[in-house]
Design a protein around this nucleic acid. Structure first.
Length: 274
DNA sequence: AAACAAGACAACCGCATAAGC
DNA sequence: TGCTTATGCGGTTGTCTTGTT
């Protein structure tokens, strides 16, 4: 179908969000909860379309979002998940609950893709057009061992980089963090301040502390879309990753198979996306 | 110090699909 | 059952920041 009618309306504001707009949006969600985005511009003074509101919330304002540097481990995980799943950023993001799909996509396009391009060893299964659902599911099942090894690499912080040529580029986790941006839209601290008051009064869903800073928060998902954030909420930690880690840990200790079925379930979830 | 280039990231656009009627 | 609308997702663009000359 076409675009939502709201985006065709005249007078819909575009461009960067202002602090005032953020506050309005956060206040509304505080009161009504996320979801029903259509109602947001109607019930507030926001001159934004519903999509814009949803994106602003999910990509920037939502509690539990980790911003800033991607760790070496996160980068490896993204690289391997991208190799497995292709450019299905929402699916990849579900394995990194503190990161948004947009964030992962941006990081991939600006950092990781360039690092991998020379060899193209981690070619994704191109696009959804070139492979059928059934084929892809079979591929995924057939390549389960490859996936396991890849994730093993991804979760092993001490291991060598995936490819020798990445050695230089993937070591940014040790680099000092870049200076915090100072302008409003880029400042996580501003958002933290913005949310601080709200989080103090917001009902605790996960029993985690309110985010004093966006770097330290646990995911308190109020997101409507969120298998990712909901799962993070339920476990107070990225459960998928924990399962993988524990499974791989057992595997490495020669007790493999214990959590394999659970991991298969995770991969089944990934398959459900096709 | 100014101009330019490159990088980084927030936001938008359009398509696909689920949901409701 | 088909149509309309809302939402989610991925690709792309625009803008701001930072680095270099």
């Amino acid at each position: 179908m076409g675009r939502p009618p709201c985006c065709n309306k005249d007078g819909v504001k575009k461009g960067p969000w202002t602090p005032e707009e953020d506050i309005i949006l956060v206040s509304y969600i505080q009161e009504h909860g996320p979801g029903n985005w259509r109602a947001v511009p109607n019930n507030t003074d926001l001159l934004r379309c519903s999509k814009s509101c949803r994106l602003r919330w999910t990509n920037y304002l939502r509690p539990g979002i980790k911003r800033g540097n991607f760790t070496d481990q996160e980068e490896k995980l993204i690289v391997h998940l991208q190799a497995l799943l292709g450019n299905r950023w929402a699916a990849i993001a579900s394995y990194l609950p503190e990161r948004t799909d947009n964030d992962i996509k941006n990081h991939w396009n600006t950092h990781l893709k360039k690092k991998l391009e020379p060899g193209c060893a981690n070619r994704p299964p191109s696009s959804r057009g070139s492979i059928s659902k059934g084929q892809w599911e079979r591929c995924l099942q057939t390549d389960i061992h490859m996936a396991k090894r890849a994730l093993c690499e991804a979760l092993s912080v001490d291991e060598e980089p995936i490819e020798p040529r990445e050695a230089k580029s993937l070591d940014c986790a040790d680099a000092p963090p870049p200076p915090a941006p100072t302008t409003y839209p880029s400042s996580a601290e501003n958002i933290s301040r913005l949310l601080e008051g709200w989080m103090k009064s917001a009902p605790r869903k996960c029993g985690t502390a309110a985010p004093a800073s966006s770097e330290s928060v646990q995911s308190e998902s109020a997101s409507s879309q969120g298998s990712a954030s909901e799962s993070a909420c339920n476990n107070a930690s990225p459960n998928s990753l924990s399962l993988l880690e524990s499974w791989l840990l057992e595997e490495n200790e020669g007790q493999g198979g214990g959590n394999f079925l659970e991991y298969m379930a995770i991969l089944d979830d990934a398959c459900d996306l096709f």
